[in-house]
């Protein structure tokens, strides 16, 4: 009933190749976070602007990003846009899809963080002669980033795991893509995916740990 023989040696030989893939995974995740953070700040600004069109646009983005499958978001970036003559490579489509998703979740986190900062903070800054932009930049933003730091870290982990969806749009250079190709050639499914899972796990843990160390350095108060 249990007749599968493990072939770990064969799988482990592919480890260097898989680690190369892990680097690509990490790169996509990091880039998607940088882009996602910038977009999330822009979306937050839109929502705070009081302009109905900008606010509506930002809210629609957040709603779609948070309430549709990440897989569809990546699919849309690759095949969906392709229908309109916009052809993104698997790498770019994966990056765009995850950045879209990150931006939505992060913008929502920022909104929650902003709510936790009392108006009196801005008022205190304004009463010292600061412009609204200065009060936001020097008083509200640093506090917001601290409150949002843990959710941002969680999103980073989520972004790493989301990169594995790239296989569906033909991504074959990241950890999931390489694992999938190795599997297709050898059918040692369990071994390859188990090793890949361990690598994903270790990356995710390392990111969380690094974030915790960074937070301890950055937030002394």
């Amino acid at each position: 009933m249990f007749s599968y023989t493990f072939h770990w040696n064969q799988a482990l030989k592919a480890l260097p190749q898989m680690l190369d893939g892990a680097l690509v995974t990490l790169q996509v995740a990091l880039l998607s976070m940088v882009i996602g953070l910038a977009l999330a700040l822009a979306l937050t600004a839109c929502r705070l602007s009081g302009n109905r069109i900008l606010g509506g646009f930002a809210t629609a983005w957040v709603e779609i990003a948070r309430n549709t499958p990440a897989l569809f978001q990546i699919y849309m970036a690759h095949f969906g846009l392709g229908n309109f003559g916009i052809h993104l490579s698997p790498y770019t489509a994966l990056l765009a899809g995850i950045a879209f998703n990150n931006a939505g979740y992060l913008a929502e986190n920022f909104r929650g963080a902003l709510k936790a900062i009392p108006d009196t903070q801005t008022r205190a800054g304004r009463s010292l002669g600061m412009t609204p932009v200065q009060a936001f930049r020097y008083i509200v933003l640093p506090q917001m980033l601290r409150i949002a730091f843990l959710p941002v870290t969680n999103q980073m982990v989520w972004a790493i795991l989301m990169t594995s969806l790239g296989v569906t749009v033909g991504m074959n250079t990241d950890l999931a893509g390489i694992t999938q190709e190795l599997n297709a050639r050898s059918f040692r499914t369990f071994e390859f995916f188990a090793i890949a899972a361990v690598i994903y796990y270790l990356i995710a843990k390392a990111v969380t740990l690094a974030a915790r160390l960074l937070a301890a350095r950055m937030f002394r108060y």
Partner: peptide, 25 residues
Amino acid sequence: IVFQQFNAFPHLTVLENVMLAPRKV
């Protein structure tokens, strides 16, 4: 102006609290 509620900027040290506006404004 000083208000009833304590409006210290929690992310800045006491010295930085006092330096911020003179520097930026």
